[in-house]
């Protein structure tokens, strides 16, 4: 391990009723959409009542990051300002937007309105773990590993972050689709090198066997 290099120290994929951590299927459920996320929440034994108030994008992010940070949190060596998030998706907050639009035909709901921005998922995760580092949410047609790699590397190399949760988190037609990476620059970090190729490989692997 070389000082200064950035590593992918963990990865979680959430797709088609399957949750995968570091290449191993850790949860599989026949339910889809909201029911799948609820089943995952219960399976993981998460106790975070705020979860019930969230839109599906934030629920997907919460479940995925909970799994992503397990083991790691016990030895978390970073200050709140040193941990950031760089997320992306294709459909922004469309699921929450539609929910809000439908509800507004009767009465507009403030609790639905607050989720009508995709970066709220970053806020929810930050509230839970008290992260205060740089963050950004990008919209792109497909997962853009090159962009995520370039942007996160820049933040780390400029000394703004030492750890970053990055990747793809999307919801369309109530179906979550996520692939999140924990990347770290630390002497104790182990894992694959943080390269665009490795991000692509993890993202593209078929986990539905």
């Amino acid at each position: 391990m070389e000082q200064g290099r950035i590593y992918i120290t963990s990865a979680v994929v959430l797709r088609n009723g399957v949750m995968v951590k570091d290449g191993s299927v850790i949860f599989r459920a026949p339910e889809k959409g909201a029911a799948f996320l609820q089943a995952a929440y219960e399976h993981l034994g998460i106790d975070y009542p705020r979860f019930y108030k969230m839109d599906l994008l934030s629920k997907a992010g919460t479940v995925a990051v909970d799994m992503l940070l397990r083991v790691h949190l016990g030895a978390w060596a970073y200050r709140p300002e040193e941990t950031g998030m760089v997320l992306s998706n294709r459909n922004a907050s469309i699921d929450a937007d539609v929910q809000y639009l439908e509800a507004s035909k009767a009465y507009p709901s403030p609790a639905l309105f607050v989720y009508t921005l995709p970066n709220i998922v970053i806020g929810e995760i930050s509230i839970r773990y008290k992260f205060k580092g740089e963050n950004a949410f990008f919209i792109s047609e497909t997962f853009d590993a090159d962009w995520i790699h370039w942007y996160v590397t820049d933040l780390v190399q400029r000394g703004l972050l030492k750890a970053c949760i990055c990747g793809w988190i999307d919801v369309m037609n109530e179906q979550p689709d996520g692939c999140l990476f924990l990347v770290e620059q630390a002497p104790a970090a182990t894992g694959q090198l943080f390269t665009a190729e490795n991000l692509w490989d993890i993202y593209n692997k078929d986990y539905e066997m």
């Binding site: 009767a106 009465y107 507009p108 709901s109 403030p110 609790a111 607050v114």
Partner: peptide, 13 residues
Amino acid sequence: SIDALELIVLLQQ
């Protein structure tokens, strides 16, 4: 605070 707004909506609705 968001819950407070929801309570206001509840009273109205």
